[in-house]
Design a protein around this nucleic acid. Structure first.
Length: 267
DNA sequence: ATTGCTTCCTGAGCGC
DNA sequence: TGCGCTCAGGAAGCAA
């Protein structure tokens, strides 16, 4: 399940292999995967890739022909470059045809992933509504106090709201709360400034560690060369039976997701 | 406004 | 072997 560290890993991989390449066309093999949000009915060549960035869980590609290509991997989406490995995916939903006879394949078993094409300068609501980046100076305990201070919802579900913090998903929310010693069921308004500080610090730490390990591959996540990440070897609670101290973990459903936590270490 | 449930979708894993 | 069931979950949409 690609979250911020996985998307960052893909972005870095893409920069190494397709920056400055020209996209001749994006071919869609599934009806809802690629959508055109420009007023241009028949898209020309999309131009040369000027930049590849990440915002939250979105990949943002800018081209010199004035296009912005947004990619969201959702749960099972993968971007795989045929110059680094042979494409083995059996669920290729879209193909970026690059000048010079290379392909970037968007493989997505469950079809929830999206590729959206915009014009530079046009409003992109998907990006504009996102909250702060976990690794930016804007994520502070004061900010979280302002956003969560009068919320009754459990902190775990608040952490998943992309309009507040952009990029966290189920796995990292569980890991951050374990490292912070906070129960995922705690209502937002019950979190003290001191505890919010801990969450901020642990959020940064977990994101940085996971990026340095090329993300987490628990099932589908792969890099652009189809290699796995390594952070799954350092998870402390997600899909575990016991926490590192040997306490039996509990699993509850919060916001429709399996939430792993230690009733002893997390209060 | 806030909260939580349903939907989209496929494959893995399980019990029988 | 094969069937039917449950589960995995990001985010939009909807209902209370």
């Amino acid at each position: 399940m690609p979250e911020l560290p996985e998307v960052e890993t893909v972005v870095r991989g893409l920069r190494d292999c397709i920056l400055n390449r020209e996209i001749e066309k994006i071919e869609s093999h599934y009806p809802t995967t690629v959508t055109n949000h420009t007023k241009i009915k028949s898209l020309p060549s999309l131009g040369r890739i000027l930049s590849i960035d990440r915002r939250g869980k979105y990949i943002v590609i800018n081209t010199d022909a004035g296009f912005v290509i947004l990619v969201h991997l959702r749960m099972t989406g993968k971007l795989v470059f045929d110059g680094l490995c042979s494409i083995t995916g059996t669920h290729v939903r879209a193909t970026f045809h690059l000048k010079g006879n290379n392909k970037l394949c968007f493989d997505d078993t469950r079809t929830f992933g999206k590729i959206k094409i915009f014009r530079q300068g046009d409003s992109i609501p998907d990006i504009e509504k996102l909250g702060v980046e976990p690794l930016s100076y804007l994520l502070t305990s004061e900010y979280l106090k302002e956003k969560w201070g009068n919320r009754n919802a459990p902190v775990k579900s608040l952490m998943l709201q992309q309009e507040v913090i952009a990029g966290l998903g189920n796995i990292y929310a569980c890991e951050i709360l374990y490292r912070s010693g906070v129960s995922p069921l705690t209502p937002g308004k019950k979190l003290s400034q001191k505890v919010l500080d801990k969450i901020v610090v642990q959020t940064r730490e977990v994101m940085q560690e996971a990026i340095s390990m090329n993300g987490t591959s628990v099932s589908d996540f792969r890099r652009v060369d189809e290699k796995t990440g390594e952070f799954q070897n350092f998870l402390r609670v997600y899909q575990k039976k016991e926490c590192p101290k040997g306490h039996t973990l509990r699993i509850v459903r919060i916001a429709g997701r399996s939430t792993y936590f230690c009733p002893v270490c997390q209060r």
